[in-house]
Simulated scan of single mutants.
Amino acid sequence: MAPELVAGQQVSIARLHGRACWYCGTVTTKMKPAGTVTLAGTTQEWPVVSCGCSPIPGQRQEEAR
């Protein structure tokens, strides 16, 4: 499966390692898996997390059920 996000800029190591929200950078709340990301020019996929500040792909459909 292809990564859901591609990061073209420098990324904080905390976000890349799933220690901080991918979208806003917070570290003070419970996180949920938000998919995977690759850095531009690489093929390494990294699992990332979200605090809920931005919709996670597929999350709205799951919550509506």
Rank of each mutant, 00 (worst) to 15 (best):
17 H>Y: 11
16 L>I: 06
20 A>P: 11
41 G>W: 08
18 G>S: 07
27 V>P: 02
32 K>C: 15
20 A>E: 11
33 P>H: 00
50 S>G: 08
24 C>W: 12
26 T>I: 04
25 G>Y: 02
7 A>M: 02
32 K>N: 08
48 V>M: 09
64 A>D: 01
32 K>M: 06
50 S>I: 00
11 V>F: 00
36 T>I: 00
38 T>M: 05
7 A>D: 01
59 Q>C: 14
30 K>N: 04
45 E>L: 12
48 V>L: 13
4 E>S: 12
14 A>I: 03
61 Q>A: 15
45 E>F: 11
47 P>E: 10
42 T>Q: 14
39 L>Y: 01
16 L>T: 08
57 P>V: 12
39 L>E: 08
5 L>F: 14
9 Q>D: 12
54 S>R: 08
17 H>I: 05
10 Q>N: 01
59 Q>R: 13
52 G>Q: 00
44 Q>G: 11
38 T>G: 07
9 Q>L: 11
43 T>Q: 04
11 V>I: 02
27 V>Q: 13
37 V>M: 04
38 T>V: 12
27 V>T: 07
6 V>G: 09
64 A>W: 11
18 G>L: 05
30 K>L: 04
2 A>C: 10
32 K>R: 09
58 G>Y: 07
49 V>Y: 08
37 V>T: 07
31 M>L: 03
32 K>S: 08
21 C>T: 00
62 E>W: 10
21 C>I: 01
34 A>W: 00
30 K>F: 00
8 G>W: 01
23 Y>W: 15
20 A>W: 06
9 Q>F: 13
2 A>W: 14
31 M>W: 02
8 G>N: 06
18 G>R: 04
35 G>H: 05
31 M>H: 06
62 E>M: 10
11 V>T: 01
27 V>A: 08
10 Q>G: 03
34 A>V: 02
